[in-house]
């Protein structure tokens, strides 16, 4: 359990003055991750993306810790190189500190173009925490679809029109792909659950191996809502069971947030302009399908929890 009073005494590792949009969820995630990490020296690697460009526009960097970026598809690979260097330099005595390694990537850099390097790094068991700030599309280039974009959502490369209803495919389940890597710690969480997120980051950083946290991140521009609702929407994703908050520790599933009452998905969809077209009578079937997928996945997750904790 994290404690805000205690966290507030730690150094702030992300300064103001970055150029993320007002109300950007990526800023919230990055700050909370760094709050959790601030008790030890940490080296951050960033994939190309909103977080990277907005926080390090030369000659201004918002990062107060060692921070590195090289390209889009390789955050996990570069981080594995840094971690390898750490092992080597620790052996030769050039480094004596206990250092942690965090890589940040958006869903583009993680689900899609960076999936191979992420898979490689996880399989090689580098000790690092990879955090996906998952805003469900390529927001940095202007809201193009990704394999994380949900069914029915409008994006600029899968728009709705006279014959199309937005994205026609369901998103892939990256969290489970990471679970399939048999790494010691995999988790999902959302903006709106600061304690869960920070506790998970701490757990991950304490794990001597590769760890992965997938954080759903409302994006006001790409999702189409007003900025003060970023946290509200993160919470709604969880309360509708669209984005379960859970963790898989050495193969054992635990659902960390079980809403007393599962809210209907409409409550979440109606706040976002990317789903506006789904409310036309001819597109009702898409909403029904989204709801059905949620129900099935939620039931499946409970089975996994039961099954792996027997």
């Amino acid at each position: 359990m994290a404690n805000l009073k205690e966290l507030a005494t730690r150094p702030e590792l992300l300064s103001g003055g970055h150029r993320l949009c007002a109300g950007c969820g990526a800023g919230i995630i990055a700050r909370q991750v760094m709050m959790a990490a601030a008790d030890k020296p940490v080296v951050v690697t960033n994939a190309t993306g909103c977080l990277e460009v907005s926080t390090t526009i030369y000659p201004f960097s918002a990062w107060k810790t060692s921070w590195f970026h090289s390209a889009f598809e390789n955050a996990a690979a570069s981080c594995s190189g840094i971690e390898a260097a750490y092992k080597a330099l620790k052996r030769t005595g050039k480094v004596d500190k206990d250092i942690r390694f965090i890589a940040f990537g958006g869903d583009g850099g993680t689900y899609d173009i960076g999936l191979q390097s992420l898979s490689g790094a996880m399989e090689r068991r580098h000790r690092m925490l990879y955090v996906c700030y998952n805003n469900e599309a390529y927001m940095n280039t202007g809201i193009q679809r990704s394999s994380s974009t949900p069914l029915g959502a409008y994006t600029t490369t899968a728009p709705n029109g006279k014959v199309k209803k937005g994205k026609e495919q369901v998103r892939k389940n990256l969290t489970e792909i990471l679970v399939a890597h048999n790494i010691p710690y995999v988790a999902q969480t959302a903006i709106g659950y600061w304690n869960d997120l920070i506790t998970k980051v701490q757990k991950a950083l304490d794990t001597a191996g590769p760890t992965f946290i997938n954080v759903i991140q409302p994006c006001r521009l790409g999702w189409g809502y007003s900025p003060e609702d970023t946290v509200t929407l993160g919470r709604l994703a969880v309360e509708t069971c669209l984005w379960p908050v859970y963790e898989v520790v050495n193969g054992k599933y635990k659902i960390n947030v079980k809403p007393k009452e599962k809210k209907p998905i409409i409550e979440y969809l109606k706040l976002q302009s990317r789903f506006k077209h789904l409310f036309k009578p001819e597109n009702e079937s898409v909403i029904t399908e989204i709801q059905r997928n949620i129900d099935e996945h939620w039931a499946w997750l409970h089975l996994m929890e039961e099954d792996t904790n027997k």
Binding site: G17, R19, T56, P59, F60, A62, K64, T65, S66
Partner: peptide, 18 residues
């Protein structure tokens, strides 16, 4: 090289976005 001092963005004011 492409090297920056840590936290140097603090001098960049975004307050007038409001």
């Amino acid at each position: 090289g492409d090297y920056l001092e840590p936290g140097s963005a603090a001098v960049f004011e975004t307050g007038d976005w409001r």
